[in-house]
Amino acid sequence: MTVIVRDLRGEGPDDVERFVHCRHLGLPYMLWNADAVRHHQTHTHPDAHYRSLVAEEDGETIGTAQTGLAYDSPEPGQGYLNVYVRPDRTGRGAGRLLVRAAEEHLAARGATRLFSWVLDEPGHRAFAERRGYRPSRSSHFLRLDLAGAALPPLQDPPPGVELRTAADFADDPRPLFLLDTEATSDEPSDVQAELTDYEAWLRETWQHPLLDLDLTTVAVADGRPVAFSVAHTDRATRYATAMTGTARAHRGRGLAKLAKTHSLHRARAAGYTEALTGNDSDNAPMLAINRRLGYEICATEVRHVRELG
């Protein structure tokens, strides 16, 4: 039995579905489906040199990797590779081959520092450290039983603030782009991101197939968005928060919690039964909000870094 590594064939439904299934087995705490995979394949900015890789053994997909450059970072030469192997197919060399292929791809495109999220489990961390990666910051996956949770009661927005949905901005989403730009720049991270390309944001974020415009909740003051909670759904039972943020001038007023609470209530009314989210371990304000909403940590990943050259 031989393991090979190749590019994902994005045009083939069976290949993409196997990719999604394998990745879900390795990382069940995030919301993904075939449409999302195809979207990333097609619409990720060309400067990212994005690739999805598959480790295959006798026709079976046993591992996946997603790799590219952080093109939206002001610091050049930063690449990422996130590798997941089916828990029941480890020890066959799939992870090692995926890492090698991703590193070669990134090095050929000028990457000098590589970042990889690694599950905070002894075997996963040892695998990364044997390959020259050192641990950095950590992040938590959180889950909420939306069907059975006792959500905080709905509250009215404070004076001068009203709640809308992203669907209200369908004709002109630029105000949401500006809010996303400010909120993203303040997120804790070891790879700083600057959202400056509106057209790229439209393709990658606004047109993302999982984005639910009706459940994405926006707090508006003085006619402009000042806080939001971005909802992704699989259009079936799973709901995920892709981003929650508040404009700097309006922080400390509880607007992020207000927006997210309203979104969760409407998601449950729409029939969603599971809510997922993720927070950097240093993001104390959002971790506190999610605890009050009933979320519980279900897994942790540790960002690992390797310097090339």
Rank of each mutant, 00 (worst) to 15 (best):
Y80R: 12
V54G: 04
C22L: 05
L69Q: 11
S73D: 06
A36P: 00
V99S: 01
L106M: 08
N33K: 02
G93I: 09
L106S: 06
W32S: 15
T42M: 07
A55L: 10
D88M: 08
V54L: 11
T90F: 04
Q66W: 09
V99C: 12
I62Y: 06
G95R: 05
T67S: 15
E104D: 15
G59N: 03
I62D: 09
H45Y: 10
T90P: 04
G91A: 10
D72H: 11
S73G: 06
C22D: 09
E75G: 06
V85W: 03
E17Y: 03
H49F: 14
E75Y: 10
L53A: 06
H43T: 14
E103S: 11
E104H: 12
H49Q: 12
H49G: 10
Q66G: 12
Q78S: 11
E103C: 07
G59W: 02
C22G: 05
H24C: 11
R96Q: 12
H39I: 02
A65W: 02
E57G: 08
V83M: 07
L27I: 14
D88H: 11
G59T: 04
V99P: 01
D72I: 10
L25G: 14
H49A: 15
A108F: 05
T90K: 14
H43E: 12
N33M: 03
R51I: 02
G63K: 01
D58A: 13
Q66N: 13
R51W: 04
A94N: 03
